[in-house]
Design a protein around this nucleic acid. Sequence first.
DNA 1: GCAATACTTAAGTGAATGCTTCAACATTCA
DNA 2: TGAATGTTGAAGCATTCACTTAAGTATTGC
Lengths: 132, 132
Amino acid sequence: MLQHSTATIEPAPLDRVLQALADPTRRRMVEVLSEGPVSVSELAKPFDMTLSAIVQHLAVLESSGVVRSEKVGRVRTCRLDPAALDTAEQWVHQRRAEWERRFDRLDQFLARTAPAAAEQDASKSPKKEPSP
Amino acid sequence: MLQHSTATIEPAPLDRVLQALADPTRRRMVEVLSEGPVSVSELAKPFDMTLSAIVQHLAVLESSGVVRSEKVGRVRTCRLDPAALDTAEQWVHQRRAEWERRFDRLDQFLARTAPAAAEQDASKSPKKEPSP
DNA sequence: GCAATACTTAAGTGAATGCTTCAACATTCA
DNA sequence: TGAATGTTGAAGCATTCACTTAAGTATTGC
């Protein structure tokens, strides 16, 4: 899926995305926006702080790419950009995957070196050591 | 000053996880740890800062649950806890999912109200809107 | 015992963050 | 037109953050 055609050199998107999502207020804003686009003042309503504060949070969300907005008349409408969320999701997912992959290697290693604990795997072909 | 003490006070695990991952140094630490458990000083080696700084980052990671550690003798060994990462992954995933679900509803709505062209008279909506 | 190792803790600093208030500005509508 | 609406911007302030330095406390090995 192709998104922003700008193909610009983004500084550190992952950094900004996670930093944007680290704040509970901004996360609630994302939750609101995940239900659909709203204007700035709409977005601000459920929050117990000034419009100014919300606008500043919005700026963080926009600079991270998580939210985009466009102004028509005097109303700015904000919407989620799921692609930016994808960046974060993938990073987290990959760390978990790597960790689990390592776990598998460890299992194999233990099955090889301590076959007493392993019920079934004595016949597996010997392999190189998993880097610890 | 009290932070918004409104109804939805999150217990805060997600908060801490995302905040932990928001920092590039801590994220690199997680990357290192995703390759397997290491001691504190091992962990600190690739970084261009004091051990103290690393230990402080480690404390953040531990308080978020992303990393756990145990001390044997004088060596503290740190390892990733993938379950904590899961919390973050799921939250992001669900926001994306909700957004895409909404997109589907919008598609359906447009297909109903503007089958050919929405040039004129899109303002009369006899059907219920997809919940905005 | 003594010194090296591995971590721990405390205190300090400059920059960033999360707010606030107050003052514009642009658009819409009576 | 002029008031209401919706947003924008700047300045200020308290708190948190990412470090630093400098001093500890346990373990381990000789």
